[in-house]
Amino acid sequence: MQKTALVTGASAGIGEATVKRLLQDGYKVFAAARRLDRMAPLAHLGAELIDLDLTDDSSILAAIETIRAATGRLDLLVNNAGYGSYGAIEDVPMEEARRQMEVNVFGLARLCQLATPLMRAQQSGTIVNVTSIGGKFGEPFGGWYHATKFAVEGLSDCLRMELRPFGIRVVVIEPGAIRTEWAGIAHQSLVERSGGSSAYAPWARKYAALLGNADAMSFASPPEVVANTIARAAAARRPRIRYGTGGGAKVFLFLAHWLPDRWKDALMWRMSQSGKVEA
């Protein structure tokens, strides 16, 4: 029987690469995102496209119902959709903070809720939650983003224990520096919110410069590295609970585990200020 997968955030980056890899592995893949036009090449490869807005519960319900009606099963849910909204915590409007939580946490959690009955009926399935190395430590100007990733780490740990009796596995993927649209979005939001007249502007502008050059960093990895890790976890008979992958992830996760908090603070601040100030 052909296995079925749902991949969110499939219009670019890690999500797009994951759809392609799972198609190669023989899955029937439902690729979900708001930007249907960006996913047209995936449709040509054989993916089924789903218009999904993680801030709209009716959209999430419709996505799962589409899969249930088409296949009656779901073997793999890859919760990849998310974005980084940056800016000093003082500067980010609460409306934007709530949206960041809605997309990165609550939308993901709602998909887990709706996918679970399908997987429980099969007595099998894998939920892959893509977090970040940023789910293990903080950095200046990324407070709301890191809060969402810390939340998904904790949510995944609880979900993993709850679903174990039903044969459903929960895996966390923690990417490092990956060459995607993420850094550009984080850069733009940081400049707009804290790079102008903000009290934090001198430091925010330095970090924005670093984010703006993130894709050029020698240790940044292509999104296919993460896609391959997801596929490997899905295929494993007994997958690991967490996979650090790509772009210095293992080094950062090691440091996050062993360094004292004050040392981590000093390291992250120093790194954030290593960029050149933009004109």
Rank of each mutant, 00 (worst) to 15 (best):
R160W: 05
I230V: 14
D261N: 00
K3D: 07
F141C: 12
R232V: 06
G87S: 13
I241K: 14
S58N: 14
K149C: 03
H44W: 07
E181D: 14
S124V: 01
Q100G: 10
Y145D: 06
V172Q: 09
A183P: 01
Q273L: 14
S218P: 00
V7L: 15
A256Q: 05
A235Y: 11
Q24H: 03
V29W: 04
Q273S: 09
A177I: 01
R68D: 11
S85Y: 15
S274R: 09
M1S: 14
I89K: 01
I241E: 12
V152I: 14
V78P: 15
G247R: 01
G154F: 06
G195D: 00
W263P: 00
L45G: 01
L111N: 10
R237Y: 00
A97N: 13
A208D: 07
R120D: 05
Y200L: 12
A201G: 07
A109S: 10
A69G: 02
Q123A: 07
I127F: 02
L210S: 12
Y86W: 13
K136S: 09
A63F: 11
P222D: 08
A183K: 00
T116H: 05
V103Y: 05
G244N: 03
Q273I: 08
A43P: 01
A234Q: 11
A256T: 09
G143H: 10
V171G: 10
K206H: 02
A121E: 12
S132A: 03
S218F: 01
E192Q: 14
T148Y: 11
L211H: 04
E48I: 15
I127S: 02
N104Y: 03
T71Y: 12
G46S: 11
L52Y: 12
Q100D: 14
M94L: 15
L253P: 07
L36D: 08
D261E: 03
F106A: 13
S194F: 07
G176Q: 08
A266L: 11
E174Q: 11
V226L: 04
V7K: 13
L159Q: 04
A266D: 04
L159F: 06
A186G: 05
R120K: 15
F254A: 12
R270K: 15
T131E: 06
E90S: 13
L163D: 02
